[in-house]
Every structure is written in C-alpha cells, then in structure tokens.
C-alpha cells in the first residue's frame, strides 16, 4: 500500500463520528477462545468484545483466524467435524457453547452472510420467507408477505426486484444476490449479523451499495464483518480487531487503529508491508 491509500483511509475516518464505545452495551464476548482443526490450533486465547449497534471489523492476513473466530460466534464451526472450540463465548452474558443452548435458536439470533452470495435456487420471495417460515415468525400469509417486503426494503433491494419476486434468486446479479442474502438474514430478525467478506465477490459499485447498507443496518443490529479491504474496514466499522497467526494482535476504535496503532504488526499490515 502507498501514501495515496493512506490518505484515502484518513479521509474516510474524518467523516466518521467518533465512536463512543463505552456508551454501547456489551453484546457478545469471547474469553480465551481457542479453536483447533484436528491437531492444528487455529486460534490462541482470543479475548474480544462486540458492542451493540456497532460494526466490528476483523482484519488480518489470510489464514490468520478471523473467519474462524467469526464462525465461532454462531457456532457454524459445529458443521465441521474436526473442529473443536475451547474457551467461552457469550451472547447477552449467556454462554453459547453451553449444553443447554439450542444451536438452531442461537443461529436465528446471530445470523450470517457469507463470502460468496449463496441464494437458494428458489424464488426471491421464498428465499426471504425461508427463515421466517421455519421459525414460525409469521401468523398469516399476509404477515409473511409483509416480512418479505420490509426485509427487502431494509436491504435496499425492494425497488429493484419488486416486479419479479417470484423469479429465481439465482437470476439476480452478484451484488443483488448478496443483498438478497442480507435481506434473508434480516428476515429472521437477528440481533447480531456476521458477515464473512461479504464484498469480496462483488464489483466496486455493488460493494459501495452493500457498505452503505451495513452502515444503515447498525442502527438496528450488531454487526461483525471480516474484510480484506482496509478501506472497507475504515469506511464501515467503529471498532477494528487485528488478527495475525491465530492471535488477536490489537483491538480498538477504528480511527485509532488506522492512524495510531499500538502494535507494530498492525502498523505494518495496514500500511501494506505484509499480508
């Protein structure tokens, strides 16, 4: 990275209101989180707090464990046979790895949007209605239609697709598909939305739309986003956590992280010396 991009980052930060982190209550907390894939340890004693109605960006070079940590937050790692999680992760002060926790319910509260848009091969309407239907969130068909419309509106997609709600979701463009996936996640009314590099498969215009959307969504939801783009982290997040080799290097307000990081590794990474 060079001087020009650094200036861009600074500009992006200037626009942002200073995040008053302490006024936001704690939503999720990881304590001494260790993750193993078989014999290999992928995360080492990660302590990280996620606060309500904020966007937390997880950055770091490939293979640093940021996606692994993200997937621990709604126990998506359970679907990988060889994966083992140690430590404690809480949602509203409840341990989500407790035996009494229903993982299905947890995932309804902590939704997820993936790297590659993955709409189901169903119609746009059914894509959105899928979650509310399985969780029984709608009392009637009209109720369900209402959820579909509001979810699409919140995801900023409604105007583009309102005339073709019954056409397959796979027929949309990449950026529209990703916003459809976000709408699908919103439809279940989650408290936290996890996003795993949601813009890596999108072009800059679609990326800008999704980023704008993330910024709006933080009014109602808590968002954790993994990103490879430093500018994106700077643009959308209030707090940033830097991972390296499975270790949480540093965590702090985004503006501080990008202007005056404590750790040399963070400094090197955001200025492009490695990663």
């Amino acid at each position: 990275m060079n001087m020009r991009t650094e200036t861009q980052i600074e500009e992006a930060l200037k626009d942002k209101s200073m995040a008053q982190n302490e006024t936001h209550p704690l939503k999720m907390r990881g304590e001494k989180v260790c993750v193993y894939y078989g014999e290999k340890q992928a995360l080492y004693d990660v302590d990280l707090d996620v606060r309500e109605n904020q966007v937390m960006a997880l950055i770091g070079p490939s293979g640093c464990g940021k996606s692994t940590f993200l997937r621990c937050l709604n126990r998506m790692n359970d679907t990988i046979d060889i994966c083992r999680v140690a430590g404690k992760i809480t949602l509203d002060n409840e341990d989500i790895y407790d035996k009494a926790v229903d993982v299905v319910e947890l995932r309804a509260r902590v939704g997820m949007v993936f790297q590659k848009p993955n709409p189901f091969p169903k119609s746009i309407r059914e894509n959105i209605a899928y979650g509310p239907k399985i969780h029984g969130l709608a009392r009637s068909k009209a109720d369900l239609d209402e959820i579909v419309v509001t979810s699409l509106q919140k995801a900023g997609l409604f105007e583009e697709v309102k005339d073709r709600l019954d056409e397959p979701g796979t027929g949309l463009s990449g950026g529209q598909q990703q916003r459809l996936c976000i709408a699908r996640a919103i439809a279940v009314s989650p408290e936290v939305i996890l996003m795993d590099e949601p813009c890596s498969a999108l072009d800059p215009i679609a990326t800008a739309k999704v980023e704008e959307l993330i910024d709006e969504l933080k009014e109602n939801y808590t968002i954790v986003i993994v990103t490879h783009s430093m500018q994106q982290a700077a643009r959308v997040s209030q707090r940033t956590a830097m991972f390296h080799l499975g270790v949480l290097v540093e965590e702090g307000p985004t503006d501080k992280m990008f202007t005056n990081p404590d750790d040399k590794r963070t400094q090197d990474y955001i200025t492009g010396r490695f990663g």
Partner: peptide, 8 residues
C-alpha cells in the same frame, strides 16, 4: 451453510 446460518 446459508440455510444452517439462518437457524434451520
């Protein structure tokens, strides 16, 4: 993943 991530 998409379906499980929605809590199905």
């Amino acid at each position: 993943d998409g379906s499980l991530g929605l809590g199905a």
